[in-house]
Write a protein that binds this DNA or RNA. Structure first.
Lengths: 197, 197
DNA sequence: CATCATTGTTGTCGACGCCTACATTGGCGT
DNA sequence: ACGCCAATGTAGGCGTCGACAACAATGATG
């Protein structure tokens, strides 16, 4: 039942992305081989070239899809009407959860090596992720729940804290569950500061 | 003056590490090729194999040397007698400065793919970096300058903030100089929190 | 129904990582 | 002083990879 596939695959591009993400998750981005990917997908070794001009283009596409899913997760987790602390906690939980579930993908998304052209597209997607936190900060400032000042700066401090937590959770410095269960506490510390009141 | 080198290089291992780091800095870890490195160093393509069992071993050695220099920089920048805020600022500045000066190296150090055996050595070096912040927090708690509670947890929040800043500074989300000049402000926000007092 | 852009295949090239067999060297024990 | 040997470097080869070019099948469009 080798059931010879039709000459045209139908949706090879999506199949390649799916297979590539599987390998990425299981063995890391360095282990990704276009030829192996083609074999696993049942096409010739040059077929991927029709959909991705080179290996970097495939990685860029993976990163972009990662940002889309991350942004979706952040949007779904947002609590636009909640006050600062629960809202920040919800967003942070979504971010860290994504990071823990897709560590290699997140590493790829943050990796510094992307073509300059797709770079703009990726930068836009990345900015969108930050956007969730920007509006959170802006809303909170409007309600006086948060220190005044340049929203960008304040957002940056918050985003850095969340991203740093995710990074430490995914690179083995920290047990991921510990980060997730202790998240409320961490967010509380972030919001109220390390100095005693 | 091709001055044929003596058969034995003298310190090939160090020369390889230096050359590798140069390539890492200029073209990223993916562009690192053992054969090219051997050519640039003027030895045969198999010579590196005498000092690094495979490519990953070379990368591990690079990461380890990175941790050593980072720890040295942190130790040199520490102000053991200063109060919390200036001390934290000094450490954070050293960390972010290192990150901005060695972005690819830091990415390699944080990358998730290291052999399990060297992994222990790397983990120890990484823990040493965190150590600077741990003692900072412990000292501050002793003086009552900081919230009480599990020092690990408190340290984690602080370290995550600093590392997150460094990550955002190196991956292009942020202009590195902006992070460095705004560091005092960010640290202040971290210590005093985002909520108004 | 002819045409042709799209998509997949085959074949090839140079470079790479890694392995094995061999050559040179310098240090160590006698 | 000298012979042995571990350490270090060399030469060659194997299988795989990414990229490219030339060719084949397909199906949409007129």
């Amino acid at each position: 039942m080798p059931q010879s596939r039709p000459y045209h695959h139908g949706d090879l591009r999506a199949a390649l992305l799916a297979g590539a993400e599987r390998t990425l998750r299981e063995r890391g981005s360095a282990a990704l081989s276009l030829r192996e990917l083609a074999r696993d997908t049942g096409v010739s070794h040059a077929a991927p070239g029709r959909h991705f001009k080179d290996k970097q283009a495939l990685l860029d596409a993976l990163a972009l899809s990662g940002y889309e899913r991350l942004n979706q997760a952040l949007a779904a987790a947002d609590l636009p009407d909640a006050t600062l602390e629960p809202r920040m906690t919800a967003l942070a939980r979504a971010y860290v959860t994504f990071a823990v579930a897709n560590p290699e993908l997140l590493e790829l998304m943050y990796s510094r090596k992307h073509a300059p052209d797709i770079g703009t597209e990726l930068a836009a997607a990345a900015e969108l992720s930050l956007g969730s936190f920007v509006t959170l900060v802006a809303d909170a400032q409007r309600r006086g729940e948060i220190v005044p000042g340049d929203p960008e700066t304040v957002t940056l401090t918050a985003a850095a804290g969340v991203h740093g937590l995710a990074a430490l959770a995914t690179n083995g410095s920290l047990r991921p569950e510990a980060v997730l269960t202790g998240l409320e506490h961490h967010i509380h510390l972030m919001l109220y500061g390390l100095k005693p009141r």
